[in-house]
């Protein structure tokens, strides 16, 4: 099973190395990771997706807690939460195929953000299923390049993941 962890860290030099290094030396795999600011200055939030059993994820969380710069770790997969990822795809788009591509993009509520004589850049946000679905459809036209932000996630409702 995939687990999405929200990790609040002190925004200090080397903190990403500490977290990434912990995963590699303990033999845990990071599926993806996204890092950014929070509402509190000096504190960053990492969203880490890790695949594994309950026992493994429990051990990942405990080991993360041992890092001095890690303030809080929550497993968002255990609770109702909103999960999103942003993906940009550069797709072959000859004049003849553009309207077909446009249609697919609209169905997935994506956006065409750049057009050149023979290609388009498409922006799409959503969960993993949606990403995989649009990728599959666009493969038909030839995907030249993909870039993804990694998943980010917030708890549903008014509850928040805070450092306290």
């Amino acid at each position: 099973m995939k687990h999405v962890l929200a990790v609040l860290v002190e925004d200090k030099p080397g903190v990403l190395t500490r977290v990434a290094g912990l995963f590699s030396r303990r033999g845990f795999n990071i599926d993806n990771i996204a890092v950014g600011e929070t509402v509190t200055p000096g504190i960053s939030r990492m969203t880490i997706t890790v695949e594994g059993t309950e026992t493994l994820v429990e051990q990942v969380i405990k080991q993360l807690h041992k890092l001095v710069n890690v303030i809080k770790v929550s497993n968002l997969s255990e609770e109702p939460s909103v999960m999103r990822e942003l993906m940009l795809l550069k797709v072959n788009a000859e004049v003849g195929s553009r309207s077909d591509i446009q249609q697919i993009v609209e169905t997935f509520r994506g956006k065409v953000v750049d057009v050149s004589p023979d290609s388009m850049i498409i922006e799409v946000t959503g969960n993993e299923e949606k990403m995989e679905a649009i990728k599959l459809l666009l493969q038909h036209f030839g995907i030249k390049e993909i870039v993804r932000t990694g998943k980010i996630s917030l708890l549903r409702g008014s509850r928040i993941t805070r450092e306290g």
Partner: peptide
């Protein structure tokens, strides 16, 4: 004292 040792 180390929670990570318990159940490791």
């Amino acid at each position: 004292i180390d929670p990570a040792e318990i159940g490791k």
